[in-house]
Simulated assay, not measured.
Amino acid sequence: MPLRTATPATPAIGRRAGRSVLGLALAGLTAALLTGCSLEEASCRGGEYPVLAVGNSGSACVPDGEEPPAGYARYPEGKVPEHVGDKWDEYWSTRTLDENGDIVKVPEAG
């Protein structure tokens, strides 16, 4: 009886593994899109909310349930940035709140 030589299985395993990784990546992307999750970078992590520096264009993240630190204020309702580069993130890059809580242009550096 002649000896049979096995063919290497590595190429097939590599292809299957590659397909599995691609399948998982596509499944994750689909789940994110279907659940409304965004692939954009969030302004703050979960359990935090963004606050605006008074008098300049700075911002920070504060743990939920805590008040903003001195020199910071909550964004006006309906004008809170949710993701880096979104409409409100861009808006607040040139505006801020003054000491009275009014929206003003960011002062020129100098």
Score class of each variant (00 low, 15 high):
residue 47 G to K: 09
residue 84 V to K: 14
residue 41 E to R: 12
residue 23 G to S: 14
residue 105 K to D: 15
residue 58 G to Y: 03
residue 109 A to R: 12
residue 95 R to G: 02
residue 67 E to K: 11
residue 92 W to A: 07
residue 52 L to W: 04
residue 33 L to M: 10
residue 35 T to N: 07
residue 24 L to A: 15
residue 11 P to R: 11
residue 44 C to K: 02
residue 23 G to N: 10
residue 58 G to R: 05
residue 108 E to Q: 11
residue 18 G to T: 09
residue 86 D to R: 07
residue 78 G to M: 04
residue 22 L to G: 04
residue 71 G to S: 01
residue 31 A to P: 00
residue 100 N to A: 14
residue 52 L to A: 08
residue 93 S to G: 04
residue 34 L to K: 05
residue 93 S to N: 06
residue 74 R to T: 08
residue 43 S to E: 02
residue 60 A to C: 02
residue 40 E to F: 04
residue 80 V to C: 02
residue 3 L to H: 05
residue 76 P to R: 10
residue 56 N to R: 09
residue 31 A to D: 03
residue 63 P to W: 02
residue 67 E to G: 02
residue 57 S to D: 12
residue 68 P to Q: 09
residue 79 K to E: 11
residue 43 S to K: 09
residue 85 G to S: 11
residue 109 A to M: 08
residue 16 R to E: 11
residue 5 T to S: 13
residue 10 T to I: 12
residue 48 E to F: 11
residue 95 R to N: 13
residue 91 Y to A: 08
residue 63 P to N: 06
residue 32 A to W: 04
residue 4 R to L: 14
residue 78 G to R: 09
residue 34 L to F: 05
residue 38 S to P: 01
residue 90 E to V: 14
residue 47 G to P: 03
residue 19 R to D: 10
residue 58 G to Q: 04
residue 84 V to N: 01
residue 88 W to D: 11
residue 31 A to L: 14
residue 87 K to V: 14
residue 36 G to C: 06
residue 108 E to P: 02
residue 82 E to P: 00
residue 74 R to C: 06
residue 19 R to Q: 15
residue 41 E to F: 03
residue 76 P to A: 09
residue 70 A to I: 08
residue 20 S to Q: 12
residue 27 A to H: 04
residue 26 L to F: 06
residue 110 G to D: 00
residue 81 P to K: 10
residue 28 G to P: 02
residue 93 S to Q: 07
residue 12 A to E: 13
residue 108 E to K: 11
residue 45 R to H: 01
residue 106 V to T: 09
residue 34 L to M: 10
residue 54 V to W: 04
